Simulated assay, not measured.
Amino acid sequence: MSGIGPKGARVVVTGAGSGIGAATALEFSRRGAEVVICLDIDIERAQQTTASCHGPAAAYRCDVGDSDLLQEIADAVTDTHGPIDIAVNNAGVGMGGPFLEGSAEDWGWLMRVNLDGVANGCRAFGGPMVRGGHGHIVNVASAAAFVMNRDMAPYCASKAAVLALSRCLRADWAGTGVGVSVICPGVINTPIASATRLLGPLAGRQERLQARFRYGHAPENVARAIVGAAQKNQGTVPVGLEAEVAYRISPFLPPPVQALLDRVPIGRIL
């Protein structure tokens, strides 16, 4: 099955108020998308993104963890703009620190956005695509899907689950005319630290975390990878040298080496 190019496409991007989501919306609009729909829990930031788009764009306030709300928005978007060609499930939050320092509420908060939000988007936008025999879903995971860390258990678990879900859906929908891609970025210069809970010994280090992210890859690099994945119907796409290397070699690392890398505490770099 061939992919779907950006020109003339109707595109939805979640978490489009900043970072990778905003860069992705702008990239699709720059490449001639018919309309770009920006979803974000912060409607003002989503509107700022649409104001910067090169073509038609619309903003909706959306909590991706609310499946009923996301379905209502998906229906409204389709009624207003027509069937969606490409949906990018990008919205996400972060968490760092020892697992036992986090509560059940912390776990639920992260999974509600990072995993349930992606599943909700796949259902709300992917369902009509499958029924119509046309479309492409792009889910944004992370290199943390295949690089484990002692201080990132919930985050790694959520992103590994997004990778697994995406691969399963790609196989499930292979004969329907709908493609599914999963993007696994490495360290990207985005404001994710502001949406990250740091627990235990890492608490209060958001500014130091954000300072480290400033040395990461530009979100525009991920945006281009997202557009390319939809256009070429690619499966799993790592972004950034560190993500590419980890994706290629992690399955072949001896268990003692994997265990050693898993034990490197985030605190040493914050």
Rank of each mutant, 00 (worst) to 15 (best):
G5E: 05
K7C: 11
K7F: 00
K7E: 07
R10A: 14
T14L: 07
A16L: 09
G19D: 01
I20S: 03
G21L: 02
A23Y: 04
A23P: 04
F28E: 04
L39K: 11
I41Y: 11
I43G: 11
Q47N: 09
T49G: 03
T50A: 14
A51F: 07
S52T: 13
C53K: 01
C53F: 03
G55M: 01
P56E: 13
Y60M: 03
Y60L: 02
R61P: 01
D63S: 13
G65E: 05
G65Y: 02
A74T: 10
D75G: 05
V77L: 13
T78D: 12
G82H: 05
G82P: 03
D85R: 01
V93C: 13
G96Q: 08
G96V: 09
P98A: 11
F99K: 07
E101K: 11
E105P: 12
E105R: 14
D106L: 12
D106V: 11
D106H: 12
L110F: 08
M111N: 07
V113S: 08
L115R: 06
D116I: 12
N120P: 05
R123T: 09
M129R: 07
G132M: 02
G132Y: 03
H134W: 00
H134R: 06
G135A: 12
G135Q: 00
V140I: 10
V140Y: 00
S142I: 06
N149I: 04
N149P: 03
R150C: 10
R150K: 13
R150T: 15
D151H: 11
D151M: 14
D151K: 07
M152A: 14
Y155G: 12
C156Q: 06
C156E: 06
C156H: 05
A160V: 01
A160P: 00
V162Y: 06
V162W: 11
L163W: 09
S166M: 06
C168A: 13
D172G: 09
W173P: 00
V178P: 03
V178L: 05
G179P: 00
V182M: 10
I183P: 02
I183N: 08
V187I: 12
I188A: 04
N189T: 00
P191W: 00
S194Y: 04
L202R: 06
A203Y: 07
G204N: 06
G204C: 13
R205T: 12
E207L: 11
E207T: 09
A211D: 12
F213Y: 12
F213W: 13
F213H: 07
R214V: 10
R214F: 10
A218L: 14
E220W: 10
N221P: 02
R224Q: 15
A225C: 14
A225T: 06
G228A: 15
A229R: 08
N233S: 09
Q234L: 14
T236K: 08
T236L: 08
L241N: 08
E242P: 03
V245F: 02
V245Q: 06
R248E: 14
S250W: 15
V257R: 05
A259T: 11
A259Y: 06
L261H: 04
D262V: 04
P265L: 14
P265D: 03
P265A: 03
P265G: 07
R268Q: 15
L270W: 11
